[in-house]
Each structure stands twice: as C-alpha cells, then as structure tokens.
Design a protein around this nucleic acid. Structure first.
Lengths: 337, 337
DNA sequence: TTGAAAGCGCTAACAT
DNA sequence: ATGTTAGCGCTTTCAA
C-alpha cells in the first residue's frame, strides 16, 4: 500500500516516492509547469494516475492563499427568489471553476454578520443577499468582507457593488395598474420589517400616493412567505380594500388561497398582485398579476462583479439596477361598483 | 498597524506579539484550553478582540484534518425537490456547526463523479443526491467518497447509507386511485432515463399492471421539468389515455398548462397526477393530485446519517425508506364515459 | 532542470 | 502553565 501520509490519503509525497523525484517536482507537474523534463513529467503523471492521486485542496489553499470558493448568505433558503439567485450564482461561478458555500440566516438578522464573517474566511469572496442587518452594522462589517457584492441592498462603503431591483418602480407600476382598473382603495401587505426591498416598495407607494391623492392606500403588516398571506385574510377584509398589493408572489398565493377559503372571488371581489414572477405565478388560480424580476440574471451578474473584485480588475463598478416588468394576468380586474 | 502576515490579514502571530505570549498559547486560549493562566488568557482575549482576530479556517483545517463542511451534489438546482433537500440538509448541518458546499451537475451524468470527487476533497463528507451515473461508476467511486450518504439511489458498497423514497409504491397508489375512478387507459410520462427514481416508478407500474390486467398503461418519454410536460401534450393526446401519471409535479404542471391551452378540461376530459407534493402543487388550477414526499425531512435525515459516519459512530445503518402519501386534489376525477 | 528548504496559519506533542 | 518545535499538504523561492 502506498498510504503513508498521516491522513491516510494519498499525498504528494507518495507520488514523489513512486516516481523517484522530489515532491517539488510532482507539484510542478501537477500545475503544468513546463520546466520539467518531459520524461520525468510522464513518469510523475503515471505515478499519479496509478495512485489515483488528487492534490489536497486544503493544502493548496493554504499555500496559495485562495480557496476557489465563494460564499453566499441568504435570509431564507426556502424563498424561491433566493433559490434562483443561488442557482444563477452557482452556475456562473462553476463555469470559472469556483464553488459556492451557502449560509442561511433563517431571517435572524443578528446571526447574519457572524455567518457572513465565517463564510468569508473560508472563501475568496462573498455575496450578501438582501441582508436584514442595519445600515450601521452593514457598513461596519463590509470592509472586512471584501471582496463583497450586495444584492438588493446598498452601502456607502467603497468598492462594494450593489445589484438592486427597482422595487419602488415595480410597486408603482402595479398600483397604477390597479388604479387604472378603477380601484380607489388599495392595501399593501408589507414584507419583513428589516427588508430593504420592503423599504423600497414603501417609497414607491409614497410616490404613487403623491401622484394619486384620490386613491386610499392602507399599510398592513406582513412577512415574506406563504403563511403570511394566508394569515392576513382578516386584516385584508377589514381594510375594505379592493386591490391588494402583496409583498411578493408567495404572500399573494397564500392570500389567494385564504380568500378562496372564505368564498371570495378573485378578481371579482378583490384584485391581488404579487411581485417577482416566480415560475409558479402563472399556475395559480387565477394566474397572478405581478412584477417580473430577472432574478437568475442577477445571480450571474453577482458572480461577474465578484470575479472582477477577486481578480482586482475593477474598483469602479458601482453595480446595476434592474427594472421589473409588469406582468398582467387574471388575478386583477375592474373594481367592484 | 498590526498587519504582519503575508496575506495581509491578522494572524495568530499578531495576537501573540500583542499579548506578549507564544502563538501556541494564543491557540490554546482560542480553543478554550483551560490549562492557561486566567490572567494570561484574559490578556490574549483582549488582544484578539482589539485586533479583531479570527482564526483562519484553512490553517485550522489543514492542522486538524477536517473542514467542518459537507458537500452535496444535485442533478439540477432548479428542481424544487433538490432545493428542499438542500434546505433540510443545510439547516440540520448548521445546527451542528457545519456548512454546505453545493455542486450542480446540470443533469450531465459524466460530470457527476468529477464534481463529487472535488467536493469531497474539500469537505468532511458528501451527500450524493439522485446521481444519474451508472451503478458500476457509482460503485467504483463510492469508496473514495466516504463518508457518503446517498439519496434516492442505492449501492452495494458497504457503509454507504441510502435514503430512498418508495416511488414504486407511490406511483402504484396513484394508478390505483385513477383505476378506482374508472380510468382504463393510463399513460406514464416518464422522467430522465438515468434517474433511479424513474426506474422505481416503472417497477411500481409493472406491479400495477400485473394486478390490473384490465387497465392499459402506455409509456411516454419525458423528463423532469416543466417544459417536458408542456411539450408532451401531443404525445399524451395521441396516446388516447384519460389518466396521466406525470413523473413529478413540475411535469404535471407543464402538462396541465399545455392541455389548458388546447382547451381541454381537467379533470373533465383528462385526469392528471403529479409526484412530490411541492408547496405549489395545491395552487395550480385545478389543485394537483399527487403523492406527497416528506422531502425536507429527507435532507435532515441525510445529515444525521452523515454526521454519524463522520463521527465514526455507525457502520450498521443501512438507511431509511420513505413512503409517499396519496394526496387527492381536484386534478383527478371520474373517467369520461 | 531539479532538489532542498522555507512558508502558508494553525494545532498538538514535547520539553521545560 | 508556557514556549519550542514539528507537522498538516502544498507551492515557490533559492541553490545547485
């Protein structure tokens, strides 16, 4: 047996012995260094194949100071939006030979900075997805997280690109759509209080209210998942609103289900809008009117930005802004007279 | 500034200098070794805090021979089933201080063993999710992947627990349900050819056919995603079947949508069943009859098994078998006369 | 072209 | 109780 190293696995030393060279030479061959004599290189390669030798990435990482891994921290892995971002990120990173380490904060904002720090130390860069932490906290830890890319959040820290979706515009478009259908009493079923994208939606609604003083817009507390919508039925009915802007598609779907259980007709009695246009939004009953966000692209773009930072190529890219697209389906209709 | 180490980050040596002790003592303090004098320990801790020192996990991993990270390789990160498994796994592992590295093979079976090997080398253990590779290949690489847990796949290699869903029984239950509604012409819209869970479904259908010679069961080629179902409309109509067993919920939803576009009534004209009971299955039009799989539990259980292997606690756990539960909704109804 | 040796940041056995 | 030293597995200077 050729198992010599302490870990019990085949190490570079085993190959060196088998090929009758120093481990430095094995390293050169494994890394495609052409200063090695072809014959010796062949011998080394043969030995490596025979022993099924694969370099230990941890040793490599320590020597090279890089891990070829990036981290992503998300508030909730159950959320299709974050799943899509993760997918886009993973796919793009894989094409450049990078792997992705995930960290789910389960919406516990106090855990985020710890998770982010831990993930970052194991990785070459980090994507922070819709962090719930305060601006102050974000600003404090951002420098120690560099290279860092932010999604749906901005910071004044230099060199941290932000990819943000213009939720404010999206929600305005949806509200305009409802107003255009004759709705004069709207209600916004809000998202997690610490969510920056929720704050952007609120800003958008303020702009809408300013432009449409004739429309009454109520604010309802909420969350980001299906249950939130389902549990909001009473609050929605009490509000007397005929057009409901749900925080996102999941909340809208929960609400839809809850209202159906009460025997209400959508959109006959009440119109509902979502946000995100997750793949399932078109298969609800009725299909969900929503604002479509090119979310997988966002994950890909996050990698592009992060890669540039890792390669120290850019310091000047502030990030990108994405415009949602109004997607009208059957969950919205004319207001009841 | 206290930045001495080559990487530019604060290292154990910086803390040692600041506290006026050796780096070994710093290591002891950081690892909670009580043989250190309380006063000195306090001094070290103060220095660590002041310098914002955090041990480098790569150095630690190399010294300890463990990474506190596990890997998971999935055939398709866009598939809600694998997302749910990932979520359950990540959540359970996080509670024990482990992180998860993901690898998406994008249904390219030839990539799987490479991805698995790479992931495994960076991690302390691996979860291989519904691998598409051949039995021979799986058996060949399984030993080098240990500690390894398999999901929806079995192998004869010893010490590799398998968590499998009894898709055969589930599909039988669904077929029985359709037969009970009077359907005598069924069609199975199959999954990816290399999918072991597809093979299990086929076995289940054989058992069903043996028990119900009066029922005709056609086999249709397919896949695992929404598009597969959508594109199968012609094949489904040509088959003349009135009861369609889709490979999973996604395929069923795609088919549902395609049939609606052709003006067919579900379940009036054709009954459809899915598989998995993903969260969205109840929000389609009509709600999808399906076989519910406790998928998040599966991810959790995968971690329990993997943890036992990592801790070398078990060699005798063969794994677990999960029974799907028939979930009757509105997408199935009496056969047309 | 190759080997010896240093070093990546850390832990742990050993010595004091 | 603490410091010195030897690894962990690898890459990379520096000599030869």
């Amino acid at each position: 047996m050729a198992r010599k190293s302490a870990t019990g696995r085949i190490g570079i030393a085993d190959v060196a012995v088998k090929a009758g060279v120093s481990h430095a030479t094995v390293s050169r061959v494994m890394n495609g260094n052409f200063t090695v004599d072809p014959d010796i290189a062949a011998r080394v390669r043969a030995a490596a194949v025979e022993l099924k030798y694969q370099p230990n990435p941890v040793g490599r990482s320590l020597a090279l100071g890089k891990t070829d891994t990036i981290g992503i921290v998300v508030p909730d892995l159950a959320n299709p939006t974050f799943q899509a971002i993760l997918r886009g990120l993973s796919r793009a990173a894989a094409q450049d030979g990078y792997r992705v380490l995930i960290a789910d904060s389960f919406e516990v904002s106090s855990e985020e900075s710890i998770l982010a720090g831990e993930a970052r130390r194991r990785c070459d860069g980090l994507v922070l997805c819709a962090p719930r932490m305060s601006d102050a906290e974000l600003e404090e830890i951002a420098p120690s997280l560099h290279p860092l890319v932010l999604i749906n959040r901005t910071t004044s820290t230099k060199g941290v690109p932000s990819l943000v979706v213009d939720y404010g515009q999206g929600v305005q478009d949806l509200a305009e759509h409802l107003a255009g259908l004759g709705h004069t009493r709207l209600a916004f079923l809000a998202g997690p209080p610490r969510s920056a994208s929720n704050a952007l939606r609120l800003e958008g609604l303020e702009a809408f209210k300013a432009a449409h003083p004739e429309v009454d817009v109520r604010m309802l507390e909420g969350g980001s998942d299906f249950d939130t919508g389902h549990e909001a039925v009473d609050a929605v009915l009490d509000s007397g609103a005929t057009g409901i802007l749900a925080f996102n598609d999941l909340v809208a779907m929960g609400l839809l289900s809850g209202l159906h259980e009460r025997g209400l007709d959508i959109p006959g009695d009440i119109s509902i809008t979502g946000f995100d246009d997750i793949p399932f939004a078109r298969y609800t009953t009725p299909g969900l009117t929503t604002a479509a966000v090119p979310i997988t692209e966002l994950g890909q773009e996050a990698w592009q930005q992060l890669r540039a930072l890792i390669r120290k190529e850019s310091t000047d890219t502030p990030g990108s802004r994405y415009q949602p697209r109004l997607e009208v389906r059957a969950s919205t209709g004319p207001a009841k007279k």
